[in-house]
Write a protein that binds this DNA or RNA. Sequence first.
DNA 1: TTATTATATAGCCATATGGCTATACATTAT
DNA 2: ATAATGTATAGCCATATGGCTATATAATAA
Lengths: 108, 108
Amino acid sequence: MDRAFHALGDGTRREIISMLARSGAQSANQLRAPFNVAQPTISKHLKVLETAGLVRREVAGRVHLFHLETAPLQQAEDWIASHRSFWEGTLRRLDQFVGAMDPEDGTS
Amino acid sequence: MDRAFHALGDGTRREIISMLARSGAQSANQLRAPFNVAQPTISKHLKVLETAGLVRREVAGRVHLFHLETAPLQQAEDWIASHRSFWEGTLRRLDQFVGAMDPEDGTS
DNA sequence: TTATTATATAGCCATATGGCTATACATTAT
DNA sequence: ATAATGTATAGCCATATGGCTATATAATAA
């Protein structure tokens, strides 16, 4: 989980994920195109994404194709959703409780 | 967004968020209790969470109370959800297309 | 006023990060 | 066989990170 969130904490890597989501599997060079960075820089980013399980590497000759992997995205999303919604549920329940209280003495 | 994902990329900070979601606003000392770390260490973590907007600090005398802020959690969740679901939608559409093809010549 | 408590800041350390250049490796093209 | 292409690795740099201890600051208690 650490690795997934860390990988998402960089704009270049999030943009790579966007590209894969929009247009499907692409090579390292294709993914590098929109960024003004050296080739080894993208290579590093792709390794970070791969290690986090967010992409899968398919070696096709001298080209490496990268596929988006949704499982860890789903996990990260679930972690956030559960905490956020639990907390919002707590607020909602507290609000209902306060709303049921007697405005004079604070008892229900 | 960078800051939010980065803040979530650390187990201690995620656990702090869990504590706040479970039990509501708590002081720095309360949040420190479950971890075997020095006081300034938690102070740093809390500042990271605060800078990312994930918590709000309420100074009450010498005690600092930390409240969970769900807006950036929602943003992060939405980012992931949109990319994941877009991609899964793409897969689903591709699957329907392939399913409609003639198995002999690959045409539809 | 003095002591105690809660938190922050300064400053250090080891390690990780994101970027680069130069170079190596692997595969395809000539 | 040689050249060209796609990617990775090594090694460097500046900066950031998470941890610590020691100390400062702020607020409450004695």
